[in-house]
Nucleic acid binder design. Structure first.
Length: 745
DNA sequence: GGGTCCCCGTTTTTT
DNA sequence: ACGGGGACCC
């Protein structure tokens, strides 16, 4: 291939079949082959050549991946270190390593198994010089990235008010996701973002990163690609090494990751990608469903294996999910079949329930949770899955008042907390002298009387002499440039850092961290803070020092933290979990509650406004992910009225509700919500069965009718569309509402 | 250099 | 309504 960065589909590299290998010497009764269905068996045993496994929700994907690795290793087709297995999350990587370990024993330890980013770090640490970095480069978190970009913008005189750094960062990240280094970005690509200078800022930002010997997450992939391109010898080594490549969640790969895989698979062409186009829900962060859709074109002669037997959900749930997702165009096409026997008398239809407003919705859901609990179900098997974070509040309130134990997932993660990042900056500064971002972060923390003026001066010296900030500071305090007070403070700070650094060799690292946090006054700062969350922060700092003890060295720890920014969310006691639909991907629960199925909330208004039809289809896939999380019980709810930004909004049931198959769904709505029913604005006390939604029924209202709405007050009907009315309210403005909410005046 | 006031945005998140 | 961040003033 002349240009490995080319995405030109016209000329795929010629397909060379893998060299013939000896027949598989694995006994047919190998334990990892036991109990596989025919499709799974095929996905495990067809080890050579390109394979795409389309694996629907709950079809045993992880089992196939781990068994396949066992098959390759046990068959003597490759040594563990010749196998590359890539995942997206650390959790998935950990799980896979553990399960392969059970099948093949210690051999699993030398597999190249990890996240894209961790594997790239492993490669880059070896060849850092080839891309202009030192081997001990720092991996920046999003905080530092943004600060660095802001510095560049300020130096370039870009108005941060007009062009938010966040937005420019987003653009840069998309470029990196697409595998485009600064010199491959067309000048006009960002439009008039930053006055047409976005591409310049990208280049300067990259220069700056290199200067401080740092990478952001996107760079890990991008630098790897650059390395492979610049050094065909190095690429050839890796291509030769990786006889077998496995990729999990292929539908989530971005272009950079796709190019990376395509380069590495070039020689042996034994690449197996597992994924589900129907569960692609991350396009907004650069994932390209296209990668999975065009696999057969990229790897001619590829085997495509569909896993459609679902071992998770009841037939009703599967039917609902399949029916809904069938409304999407451009799918590879898959239909989930029940893989387990289900007693039709024992399985319940999917329930859809309409309620008056948000608080009522929370009441209904939590009532149901309590009912199921009384029936002997465990809370740990129940989940409330919301579209967006703001929806969790009402459920939390209700769960607290009823005393149902719960856990909200997705708060700020441990290593993203301010106090942890600050402490980490201290450790980074001690560990690597040229980490200028760490220096800036802690030089005046706690307050030492070093403000912008002093810092500015340090920057000036650093730029003039080409020194790291810390070295510049040491030089500066030797002069009379600074006023006495800041000078003393900065001298003291530099001396402290040097002293801590001198302890690196002699002291064990948790002890050193303890010393640093103590002598710097950082812990003291929080102890003196009287805000309510300060004690928690002190506790977190203790936790950090403890965690440090689990690593062999400070360096190892810093790398781990940069790559594994996760909560060790203990799945401790019996609690209902509340989380976003995105967060629930890959999980399963006996009972799933899906609230907020209203137009504008789900599908989310912004997804439709910004993504058009493609946005809507991604929302639908998200709905599909939600439905397929449930093993036995599924309750979907929507509210007729919702308060958003403290304003009451009338809401219409989600279009996704109309896309569920009648035969498998049981619909109920509070009286007064029934489309076409007698209008009533009284808070409903009883519940009526709502059979089939009749969307196009003629309305009792005409244009010009004067009507009264319980929350918006009086208004005039502007337009009638079936059961939907557009009404100009006297006070609340023009809104669309269901006719059942208003009455004639 | 630190505090106060105002204005803006307010989907989803991993590494 | 509310919180976070930036600008401005003391």
């Amino acid at each position: 291939m002349s240009d490995p960065f080319s995405l030109d589909d016209e000329s795929p590299a010629p397909f060379r079949p893998a060299p013939p290998r000896p027949p598989v010497a694995v006994p047919a009764d190998a334990p990892w082959l036991a109990g596989l269905n025919p499709e799974q068996h095929q996905a495990v045993t067809v080890t050579d050549g390109p394979v795409l496994v389309l694996s629907g929700a709950g079809t045993g994907k992880t089992r196939v991946l781990t068994s396949r690795l066992a098959q390759i290793l046990a068959g003597g087709r490759a040594q563990p270190w010749q196998c590359l297995a890539v995942t997206f999350t650390n959790k998935a990587a950990r799980e896979m390593r553990e399960r392969v370990g059970h099948l093949v024993g210690p051999a699993s330890e030398s597999l190249w198994l990890g996240t894209f980013h961790a594997l790239c770090v492993r490669i880059l640490r070896r060849h850092a010089e080839a891309v202009g970095l030192k081997s001990n480069f720092t991996i920046l978190d999003s905080d530092d990235q943004l600060r660095l970009l802001k510095q560049v913008m300020e130096a370039e005189g870009i108005d941060a008010k007009r062009w938010p750094a966040q937005a420019i960062m987003g653009t840069i990240q998309r470029w990196k996701d697409r595998g485009q280094p600064p010199d491959k970005v067309g000048g006009a690509e960002a439009g008039d973002l930053a006055g047409g200078r976005a591409a310049d800022l990208y280049r300067l930002y990259q220069d700056r990163l290199r200067l401080v010997n740092a990478c952001d997450f996107g760079d890990l992939l991008l630098h790897c690609l650059t390395l492979f391109l610049a050094r065909p010898d190095i690429l050839a080594d890796y291509q030769g090494q990786f006889r077998y490549i496995l990729v999990d969640e292929y539908q989530d790969t971005n272009v950079a990751q796709y190019l990376w895989l395509r380069l590495l698979a070039q020689k042996h062409r034994n690449i197996c990608c597992v994924g589900d186009d129907d569960q692609s829900i991350y396009s907004w962060r650069g994932a390209e469903v296209g990668n999975i859709l065009k696999f057969e074109r990229d790897f001619p002669g590829a085997r495509v294996i569909r896993l459609e037997s679902n071992y998770r959900s009841t037939p009703h749930i599967l039917a609902a999910a399949s029916h809904l997702i069938a409304h999407n165009a451009g799918r590879l096409g898959k239909t989930l079949r029940p893989g387990l026997a289900h007693d039709p008398d024992q399985t319940r239809k999917v329930r859809v329930r309409g309620v008056w407003d948000g608080p009522e919705e929370a009441r209904v859901v939590v009532d149901e949770i309590e009912a199921q609990q009384r029936a002997g179900q465990s809370l740990a098997g129940m989940a409330i899955l919301v579209r967006a974070g703001f929806q969790t509040r009402e459920f939390e309130e209700r769960l607290i008042t009823t005393g149902v134990p719960y856990r909200v997932l997705g708060g700020p993660r441990f290593y993203e907390r301010q106090e942890i990042r600050d402490a980490m900056a201290y450790l980074r500064l001690v560990n690597s002298p040229d980490d200028g971002l760490a220096f800036e972060r802690v030089v005046n923390l706690p307050k030492r009387g070093l403000g912008d003026a002093a810092l500015q001066m340090v920057h000036t010296v650093a730029r003039a002499r080409g020194l790291p900030l810390f070295e510049a500071a040491r030089l500066l305090v030797e002069t009379d440039e600074l006023k006495p007070k800041p000078r003393t403070a900065l001298t003291r700070f530099c001396d402290d850092v040097l002293r801590w650094r001198s302890n690196l060799e002699t002291m064990d690292h948790p002890q050193l961290a303890d010393l640093i946090l103590d002598e710097s006054g950082y812990v003291e700062m929080w102890k003196a803070d009287k805000s309510p969350d300060a004690p928690g922060r002190v506790e977190n700092l203790g936790e950090l020092v403890r965690a440090l003890g689990e690593y062999d060295s400070l360096e190892q720890f810093l790398d781990h933290v940069a790559l594994v920014m996760e909560n060790d969310s203990r799945t401790d006691t019996d609690k209902v979990v509340v989380m976003t639909l995105h967060g629930a991907k890959g999980l399963e629960f006996d009972s799933v509650f899906l609230p907020g199925w209203e137009e504008g909330v789900f599908p989310h208004q912004r997804a439709m406004d910004e993504g058009g039809l493609a946005g809507l289809e991604e929302e639908r896939r998200l709905a599909y992910v939600g439905l397929t999380r449930a093993r036995r019980n599924l309750l979907i709810t929507f509210a007729g009225n919702r308060r958003i930004y403290n304003q009451w909004q009338a809401s219409l049931p989600s279009r996704f509700l109309d896309e569920l198959p009648e035969a498998h769904v049981e619909r109920q709505a509070d009286r007064g919500l029934h489309p076409g029913g007698a209008p009533s604005w009284k808070r409903p006390a009883e519940v009526a069965t709502w059979a089939v939604p009749e969307r196009r029924k003629t309305s009792d209202f005409d244009e010009g009718s004067r009507v009264l709405h319980p929350k918006f007050g009086p208004g005039t009907v502007l337009a009638v569309d079936g059961d939907k009315l557009e009404i100009a309210f006297d006070k609340a403005g023009t809104k669309k509402v269901l006719d059942s909410f208003v009455e004639l005046m």
